[in-house]
Design a protein around this nucleic acid. Structure first.
Length: 326
DNA sequence: GGGCCCGCAGGG
DNA sequence: CCCTGCGGGCCC
């Protein structure tokens, strides 16, 4: 059998946010080579071992997951599946050496989160592909259990640096061509601006966003509007991140941080005109008639919203949740 | 190809 | 909690 070749970046047009039932499914999708191990590696173009994907599933007690930044623990030094170090880890371990190699070469790695990981950022069950990260540092230290561990600092690539999948690239090419064409004709600056926003929106329409919109049948969770546009008979809705994406303090692209909204309510949420209370009521700060008005957020069983994202959004807009007359 | 070791599964 | 099973690498 031919040696596995490391492959960096998205694979098979699988969008970040795509959910899998089991490690076997993740492997079969070619996101991660291994059935069980955390680090996926193969030979790179110089025939060295280089890592191309990792799984985070609480296998090592020293892991720290903050979505945008991950402090990952290398492989080895524990009895299988125990989560407990019983000896030192080594840089001779192929997984650890391959992650270091990818750090040196600047290869990005795919990150897959399992349900046992950090609650705020992990899927309720199974596994979820969360896109591309770069490895910014590696070092050794003494772990909680008192043994040497290999450590890696990973940072999520900014949205504009998350490489597009090939389908998205095709759409972008198409839009680029149309944009050029229109610019020649009209020299209208608004055209290229609109083109830019369209591309951004495509990039951000992850599997998470698609799933949330489907759960709500493309109806707005705030006002209930079902915008019937398009020939497919489906309504138009947008995936709105409560705790906005981007930047080192950006929120995660996970179900519990996304709402299905109409464009009006989306922009109001993004500008802080709408906010959510801890008990999932929507408050319009600038409602006509003086006092803020609130109404319950429309919810469905399978769509859990996390308070921490609601709070991050309020904190961002400097909203203290005190004067709540519903 | 066989034997051995390893591992962020998976199920009882 | 323990145990079994399995795929991949690597060494004969």
């Amino acid at each position: 059998m031919a040696a596995y070749r490391a492959n960096f970046g998205h694979v098979n047009d699988i969008l970040p946010g795509t959910h899998f039932e089991s490690r076997k499914d993740v492997k079969d999708a070619q996101l991660h080579k291994e059935r069980e191990a955390g680090i996926s590696w193969g030979r790179d173009d110089e025939d060295e071992r280089a890592a191309d994907a990792i799984v985070l599933s609480n296998g090592y007690a020293d892991d720290v997951d903050q979505w945008n930044e991950i402090t990952y623990t290398g492989a080895g030094g524990q009895t299988r599946n125990s989560s407990q170090q019983t000896s030192d880890q080594s840089w001779d371990n192929y997984g650890n050496a391959s992650l270091r190699r990818s750090r040196i070469k600047g290869n990005c790695v795919r990150v897959i989160r399992g349900s046992k990981g950090e609650r705020a950022y992990s899927p309720g069950s199974g596994y979820r592909y969360d896109g591309l990260y770069e490895i910014v540092a590696d070092w050794s230290e003494t772990g909680r259990a008192g043994f040497q561990i290999c450590r890696f600092k990973l940072r999520r690539l900014a949205d504009e640096r998350q490489e597009l999948t090939s389908v998205e690239r095709q759409v972008q090419d198409m839009l680029d061509r149309r944009g050029q064409h229109l610019t020649e004709d009209s020299a209208d600056d608004a055209v290229s601006r609109r083109r830019t926003t369209t591309v951004e929106r495509i990039v951000r329409d992850t599997a998470v966003v698609r799933r949330v919109k489907r759960w709500h049948n493309f109806a707005c969770q705030v006002c209930g509007l079902s915008l019937a546009v398009g020939a497919d008979g489906r309504s138009y809705a947008e995936g709105a991140h409560i705790h906005a994406l981007g930047g080192p303090d950006g929120g995660p692209d996970v179900d519990s941080n996304v709402l299905c909204l109409c464009p009006n309510c989306h922009v109001q949420l993004d500008r802080g005109a709408l906010y959510l209370t801890d008990d999932l009521r929507v408050v319009n700060r600038f409602a006509r008639g003086g006092a803020p008005r609130s109404a319950p957020l429309r919810t469905v069983e399978q769509h859990r919203i996390e308070k921490r994202f609601i709070r991050a959004h309020r904190r961002f807009w400097g909203i203290q949740e005190q004067s709540l007359n519903s």
